[in-house]
Nucleic acid binder design. Structure first.
Lengths: 217, 217, 217, 217
DNA sequence: AATGAATGAGAATTCATTCAT
DNA sequence: AATGAATGAATTCTCATTCAT
């Protein structure tokens, strides 16, 4: 897969793949604990219970670890979006779909500590910028796809803009799901759905007005 | 409470205050240029056209620079919110108020280039966490205040929740105002207003329903 | 001077220049002790009785230290060649000139431990290659100059070739001057002169034959 | 004495010896490509198309690889000198003999690309020093042998000194045979012969004078 | 007060060598 | 025997902070 392009050496054995996974898990944990910049490769190796040498046998540098981690996140995010999209076969309402999406994303966020540390970092190196782009793109593209299902015939440019806005709303709100208090977290989850739904409904309304008035002309 | 608490020495003379301001300007610039983590104290001193020794005469460490900068941002943000709040004497519509607020915040963001670099960093030290908290609090508190004006009688808890959501929507969307293309930026600005307005209207609706149904009982 | 171009920061104060010199002395010593590749920047700093940080304040990397050292060597070598060339005002014999040159070079070599370690290393980086080139060029160019004085009218191409050979003979023989035994060292010095003289005489002879035969034609 | 003393295990089977040879070939190639210091044992193993583990089954450490390679070089150099010495049965002139020797050495140098990288390195460990010594000794000893044939009755001490000088002249000049331009390389080869011959003739002359004057006394 | 040289802990990365499979 | 994953000491270089002048 594409993620392997960032690996120094594609692990041929099961053990190697496990080690790669363990390193990525460790990296995610360390990123979650201290943030991306403060995370050291030694800390990641220690967390992965491996040696620094082994880490560098698989990853040529720190950026590559993040790239691989992001590739994994993208794969897993895709699963979240896919499961929501599949449900669309049943022609569910926008409200229910948004509900499932937000629940899925919150669950993803809660089970993937470290994701936000990477998602919100300001990338420095060129490679880091490309990686950040990749991650942002996944959310944006999937948002566009979903939007296209609920508001068909939307001009490309508008769909692009609206999806950009929606994905950034989600990006801004996701960190809130970290909240410890369970009741409050549920309330927040609900508000995220409300906010997203409100924005999407506003898109629908405006689009209907536009097309209606077009017909009138 | 006063921002000067983070200063090693309160500059009693005008010259000292000017130097502090120049350092903060420099810090903001460097943060904007290379990001928070890549910014070095030496680079900040150089940008401020002072010596590293002088910098440390005013600030005990790097965190203190950020704290002071954030304190200044908080002051300046307050001005943005205040000007919007003052207009409320005229009892403007929610739509117009949101429009002014978003315009003000976008303008603030564009004229304070280092702001986002600090706002979105993952704080490491305890002091950094406190500083980040302070900044988040300002936005949240001011949001609550505004919300209270448009939906009076909202229970504290709900007002707190809604303002939290609203401030995070804004936080998520603000970085988009960086976009170079002027047309697209204007379109984005409009969508930010739409999204925020849509959410706030949903709050109003829900509140009216609640109170109406309350009355019916 | 040109050597400063490799410095990260031109030392403005006497103290700074002294420190640079001390670091270069230390580097020469360490190179002499363990060879170029085995020399570590920490060892150089320790030998210079300074901190690794100070070393890097003046030199951006290890290669730059060598470059500066070589620049100093080139300056000092120039002095050796100059003093020999100046004597030529007296129109000394080739034998005496070679004698003085070899004595000068042996003295230079004995008083500049570390020179050979750099002169004979195989450069790896591009910068190192350029530096090695510079050093080789100095010897070659000065050899050409001297040769031109003793065998005037030699075609450029030949002078270039002969000087190349002569400079490499010297390069090959110089390390022998390290020999501890004083008697043996003196004998070696004498043989170096003999060998160099023999080669240069052969050039003269061949050139005279050539020009003689040319005239005959 | 035997080169196998540096081997961890004398390969009893043909296959093992082939593997050892392949590793030495690989080492020579890598030394030629990147220089001695930059050569890694992993790169050597890769070039030899074997595993790093196998490499260490035959050689206890990196120095041992060089030692074995040098031992092979010494063997092969011996062949060059032997073929020249054998021709001496025909009582060829010094000029012709030098010509053959230099041609042989240049050919050796050109066909053994890794040789110079090892010959000119500054040895660090004790083992490396011993190995370097061994290589230098071979050239020196063979030089002495040849010198003895052309200037018989030379006192041991002088023969030793002269051979030392001659071997270092050759060492200094050999790297020049790397030159790409074929014409220039041929010219250089010729000059090497001229220089060496000139020195050896000077030895002869001095010896004849000495013995003549001895007789006169 | 101002300056900027000096410090050294700490970070990323390499590579000779070992050892489990 | 062969393999190549694993190890970690050692190396280069950075940068927050101190301190002599």
């Amino acid at each position: 897969m594409s993620r392997h392009s960032t690996l120094r050496r594609a692990p041929q054995q099961k053990r190697g793949q496990q080690r790669v996974d363990r390193i990525l898990d460790a990296a995610a944990q360390v990123f979650a604990d201290v943030g991306y910049e403060a995370a050291t490769t030694n800390a990641i190796a220690a967390q992965a219970q491996t040696s620094i040498g082994s880490l560098y046998q698989f990853f040529p540098n720190k950026d590559a670890i993040v790239s691989a981690l992001v590739a994994r996140y993208v794969d897993q995010l895709r699963t979240v979006y896919d499961s929501v999209l599949e449900d669309q076969a049943e022609e569910l309402s926008l409200e229910i779909t948004i509900g499932r999406l937000v629940d899925g994303l919150i669950d993803f966020h809660l089970t993937h500590t470290g994701f936000m540390a990477i998602f919100t970092r300001s990338p420095v190196s060129e490679q880091a910028k490309a990686t950040a782009e990749e991650l942002a793109y996944e959310n944006h593209a999937r948002g566009e796809q979903l939007l296209g299902m609920f508001v068909p015939n939307l001009p490309d440019k508008k769909r692009h803009l609206y999806a950009l806005i929606a994905s950034h709303i989600v990006k801004g709100l996701m960190p809130l799901s970290d909240i410890q208090d369970e009741h409050f977290r549920a309330a927040v989850a609900n508000e995220i759905k409300v906010a997203l739904l409100a924005y999407l409904e506003s898109i629908r309304e405006r689009f209907n007005e536009d097309t209606t008035s077009d017909q009138q002309e």
